[in-house]
Simulated scan of single mutants.
Amino acid sequence: MQYSPAPMLDISKIKAITLDLDDTLWPIWPTIERAEKALSAWLGPQAPGAAAVFADPQARLALRQQVVRSQPEIGHDLSALRRESIRLALHRANEDTRLAEAAFEVFFTERMQVDLFDDARPALAFLAARFPLVALSNGNADVGRVGVGEFFVASLSAQEFGVGKPDPRIFHAAASSAGVASDDVLHVGDDAALDVLGGLGAGMQTVWVNRHDHQWSHEAQPHVTVATLSELCDLLQAAPARPSWVVSCRLSARRPV
């Protein structure tokens, strides 16, 4: 296949940055695995039937798929999907479905305990010193509970907005939340289709964060590909810092407390 040449990044046009969260700022699957274990452990003494379902990845997936089929209107809302999956597991096991809300909170609390990539916190400090940052995610992470809310002027998720990436409407809404036009935004994310193609479709400049050296397989190209967020900061060194900010992208990373 012939690919179009990558467009040139125009730093002078950037007035705001939208950032994906899962697998861009932290690895998501270790977090989800810990949350699944916490959920199963909590359910075990009170609802062993449901606990067994959530301890089995295939049974868990089948349950989720059943919820999506029966309630397609919540397919974009990962919190609702999780909550209803727990409720369905309890129902099928003839256990107390009233446990669903408390069980979800156990899962969600653990899901917020992310381990940031080493470059994430210093990069957020560097970028936030230069541009308004908006979190833009199809997931259900809460940037405040995760411990990085201080860097963002706004946060928009698919479950709040009603549609997710790559739908251009959520990108446009994110731009509006920063008070700029979509073509003044740089979108940064790890997912080739959801982040890069979605951002391009919304008229934004895009950065593909390719931490694992994947091959690009789409005709349209990101404006920039980086292996780390530190590389992105290096590219944006020319962007002026806001008054009173003196930040280095390569400061030692500190995990959220």
Rank of each mutant, 00 (worst) to 15 (best):
S4K: 14
P5V: 11
M8F: 08
S12F: 03
L21E: 08
T24K: 02
I28E: 14
P30L: 13
I32V: 15
I32M: 15
Q46M: 10
A47E: 03
A47G: 01
A52W: 01
V53G: 00
V53D: 06
A55Q: 11
A55M: 03
A55P: 05
P57D: 11
R60V: 07
A62N: 13
L63W: 02
Q65R: 13
V67Y: 04
V68E: 04
H76V: 14
L81R: 08
L88S: 09
E95T: 06
D96L: 11
A100M: 11
A100G: 10
E101K: 10
E105S: 08
E105M: 13
T109S: 15
T109C: 04
R111S: 14
L116I: 07
D118K: 03
D118R: 08
A120H: 04
R121E: 15
P122E: 08
A125C: 04
A125K: 08
L127R: 06
A135L: 13
A135T: 13
L136H: 09
L136V: 12
S137Q: 14
G139D: 12
V146E: 06
L156N: 05
L156I: 14
L156G: 05
S157Q: 12
A158I: 15
Q159D: 11
E160H: 14
V163D: 09
P166Y: 00
P168F: 12
H172V: 02
S176K: 12
S177R: 10
G179E: 03
G179S: 02
V180K: 05
G189M: 03
D191I: 05
L194G: 01
D195A: 02
G198A: 05
G198T: 00
M204I: 01
Q205P: 08
Q205H: 04
W208K: 01
V209S: 01
N210W: 08
R211C: 09
H212D: 15
H218D: 01
A220C: 00
Q221W: 06
T228G: 01
L229E: 07
D234M: 00
L235K: 12
L236C: 05
A238K: 10
A239T: 08
V246C: 08
S248P: 00
C249R: 10
L251Y: 01
A253C: 04
R254D: 08
